[in-house]
Design a protein around this nucleic acid. Structure first.
Lengths: 226, 226
DNA sequence: CCAAAAGTGTTCACCGTACACCCATGA
DNA sequence: TCATGGGTGTACGGTGAACACTTTTGG
């Protein structure tokens, strides 16, 4: 458990980890993926999936790898969120965590599978979070805020939708993320006006109601600024 | 130069540094503070001020400290920008750099003084940057983009102005940052309409022209979203 | 025919933009 | 009196917000 390491630079080296906040929307709820820690510290607590950076590994690759190892989940989109480094955030030694925000499509059938350091994996609705290990509560707060902000000025939503979707689904997705209801007519007018989506030509029948037109993203496009 | 270090976690530890992109506006130019490296690697090259994280030090504090040690500069505002960690970004060993974006007031009289690892310190206009060490060119690009973006939706500008300023000065500052000229009447209407600034009651005489009204920030306020 | 979601337009307030002239000062 | 930056208002177009009824389907 204790090791010695050679360094070129004559400074003590902190540990570096990545943690991943993975969002999806299911049942009109915004959810995050958490793992139950199999090992100390915080053994048995829920936490963000993540782990130590390999010495020749890119940061983003580390985030993807740790997520895959602990949960089996592969994400649609991933981006760096913020780096958390309070000296006391890990009780054992100094740990710097580079946090990533990731998304999974609404219709992704993949079931998370606990493995590696994870004793269990589960999607949690954001308003029913358990007590979390480390500073992971704060990290999730920051990620949620970022997600909400980016809804307004990027096309990040389309990383959370299914490949095709109805306007009703899209609206419920927006509403799930920033919590308040939207006006249907205004919402549709805006979405169609932005020219980001187009009809597939099909309709989707939803139970016993009027079938809805199906849409897709027009050009596979940037998630960043329009 | 080579050391051994004990770690609790059984993983090789990369080095962690902070680098600071410090902006100011002077002579209607947006400028960044650079240091000439006194030591290898990249000895003699210009680089961002920054250095290794002390083991019990907060990340932001490290950024401030390294900046002060190498240049003597104290900033008005500092915020985390992004973490850069390409495996090959430092030729000697793996180094993760947490970059910070900082600002200095336009009228700050402090002169930078080279010390510690810096052989020299200088403010460079952004369009006359020298060749830079490491990936510092990319880091500056990202910082510049962030600064430009935040001009639009935060009150970050007021971390770059003097304590008091005229509307002409403020407009030239905006123009220096995003590079294009603005309409005077529209600029003034917007600035006054936002209610973020107020007259001090004084006027400023500027050479042989009509004196300009002097303004200050109304409530010392958030730099983040309005 | 009933329940439930899909679909549809207009009005208004506000905001960003384009645009040109007079004012106060020092030399 | 002239050169220079300071200071001012109006008209137009686009966008976000409020707001209610008809259509289509399955049961």
């Amino acid at each position: 458990m204790t090791s010695t390491t050679r360094h070129c630079y004559d400074y003590p080296h902190p540990a570096v980890t990545t943690d991943v906040i993975t969002f999806r929307v299911r049942a009109d709820q915004l959810q995050v993926l958490l793992v139950r820690r199999a090992n100390p510290p915080f053994q048995g607590r829920w936490a963000l999936p993540g782990g130590f950076l390999d010495i020749d590994e890119d940061l983003e690759q580390c985030a993807r790898r740790e997520l895959a190892e602990e949960t089996g989940i592969r994400v649609t989109h991933i981006e760096q969120l913020h780096t958390f480094g309070r000296p006391d955030r890990d009780p054992r030694e100094r740990v710097i965590s580079v946090a990533y925000l990731a998304t999974v499509r609404q219709d992704d059938p993949a079931q998370p599978v606990a493995a590696s350091d994870a004793a269990a994996v589960r999607w949690f609705p954001l308003d029913e979070l358990p007590g979390l290990a480390f500073d992971h509560g704060q990290i999730i707060d920051k990620a949620r805020q970022r997600l909400r902000d980016k809804l307004e000025y990027t096309s990040l939503v389309f990383q959370l939708t299914a490949e095709t979707f109805t306007l009703g689904e899209l609206q419920r997705l927006y509403e799930a993320i920033h919590g308040s209801p939207l006006d249907k007519r205004n919402f549709r007018k805006r979405m169609l006006g932005l020219g980001q989506i187009e009809e597939t030509g099909h309709t989707r029948r939803n139970g016993k109601h009027r079938p809805a037109r199906e849409y897709r993203i027009r050009h596979p496009q940037r998630v960043e600024y329009f």
